[in-house]
């Protein structure tokens, strides 16, 4: 196991609410569906559920904050941002 798949799965788990719901209902099945090794899947059945909920909430708040405070990147986006103010 090289660890990349597990990180990719965790990233999705932290971000995607539907996946999180399916996963919490059946961690083993969801981990296997994602192609994780049996060791990784077994580790995920022991997941820190309190931590998962709180971390996912915190990441969601951070993403929202970034979206609201992102600075316009392209000329077109800058124009759109100005227009949005009117």
């Amino acid at each position: 196991m090289n660890g990349e798949n597990l990180e990719a799965f965790l990233a999705r788990l932290y971000v995607d609410e539907n996946l999180r719901e399916r996963f919490l209902a059946n961690p083993q099945a969801e981990a296997e569906r994602a192609g994780l090794s049996s060791e990784e899947s077994a580790a995920l059945t022991q997941i820190d559920r309190v931590g998962l909920e709180l971390a996912a909430d915190s990441f969601a708040r951070k993403r929202l904050y970034k979206e609201l405070h992102a600075r316009p990147q392209t000329f077109l986006e800058r124009i759109k941002a100005v227009l949005r103010k009117f």
Binding site: A8, A11, R12, Y14, V15, D16, F59, R63
Partner: peptide, 17 residues
């Protein structure tokens, strides 16, 4: 990970990998 942006710092599994 795998194209998904978490949006903040996340602790990776602490492994040899």
């Amino acid at each position: 990970g795998g194209g998904t942006e978490i949006g903040h710092l996340a602790a990776p599994p602490r492994t040899a990998a």
